[in-house]
Nucleic acid binder design. Sequence first.
DNA 1: GTCTATACGGCGATAGAC
DNA 2: GTCTATCGCCGTATAGAC
Lengths: 194, 194
Amino acid sequence: MPAEQRRESILSAATEVFGERGYVGATTDAVAKAAGVSQPYVVRMFGTKENLFLEVLHRALERLLATFRGVIAEHPDEVGCEPLAGRIGAAYADLLADRGLLLSLMQAFMLGADPVVGPAAREGFLQVYRLLREEAGFTPEQADQFLSHGMMLNTLVAIGMAGDYASDPRARELVDVCLPSKAPLVVALAKKPA
Amino acid sequence: MPAEQRRESILSAATEVFGERGYVGATTDAVAKAAGVSQPYVVRMFGTKENLFLEVLHRALERLLATFRGVIAEHPDEVGCEPLAGRIGAAYADLLADRGLLLSLMQAFMLGADPVVGPAAREGFLQVYRLLREEAGFTPEQADQFLSHGMMLNTLVAIGMAGDYASDPRARELVDVCLPSKAPLVVALAKKPA
DNA sequence: GTCTATACGGCGATAGAC
DNA sequence: GTCTATCGCCGTATAGAC
């Protein structure tokens, strides 16, 4: 397999593993197994585990920003208006289908104390905020609202508030209220069989 | 020192360390050093690192719930009304002064995939939600709103979006909008010197 | 381009003295 | 009640073959 393609598959696997177990909890071996290669090969290709995580973070951010820009480009007349906020929110929720993407971002956000990952995470968070303010035309209050519900979504997914817990009436109510479009997301929220 | 008091100081130290580094990233040795005891003593007293974290999680939740109940008890006439939501929100923000408390909670929320911590975290999150709904009289939408901004606050603190980053205009704007009462919180948000 | 073998360090946990 | 010493595992990273 060509290196470029192998690289992609490892990054994809790493995104899932980092999202599930966190930066520290994830092992290069787990990433390797998920990608179907040997552990030393993962390290060889990315230098260090830290470097691999930074790549995952960078790509997740690029994907997120590109998705938002796509929505804005499709509805340039709505910049600064309410409907656009709803569209971008829906786009965000759709990204949950990519198991690991938003979770990896969230894991990075929790690493603010890390001397290397911390600055990258802060810069990434700011990039999103700037896009909302400067490209989507959100007011500061709209951006706060949007990001807050994004963090809530991330947290609900990370904590695994679905699956069996949906049997609890309050848990069901909580998930129902917090999730915009329920149907596709229940799938994303439920733990994968593996 | 009596065992009970020693226990308290270790739990307090552990709350800070777990909040800063996460469950996996924190070491029993770092907790021991922060508490001024030897590493084996920490393990001896709590059995395992996992057990220690569960204790930290439990105590943080108790503290959070007790704080909310205190506010409700002081204003029983406001149950189900808007002003109470503001009071509870302010109480939540005040808890940030206790460095580590809300961060440890957030770290636990990110461990949904863990077979032991995961269920405890979900149950804790639900306890908070039930309190808001059943004791504070929040509507589901109010609870969503409250929890969302709580998760946002946690995230901003965890990512360390303060200190030097306050020089960035957008970062300052973001923090200013998301934080209810700014003055006391800037202290909590800024990284401690150690 | 990918693997096997392995060195090396760190961390949780145990043993046992005082 | 608290420590020192230490074991053993696991995970990152390196060396080197194919």
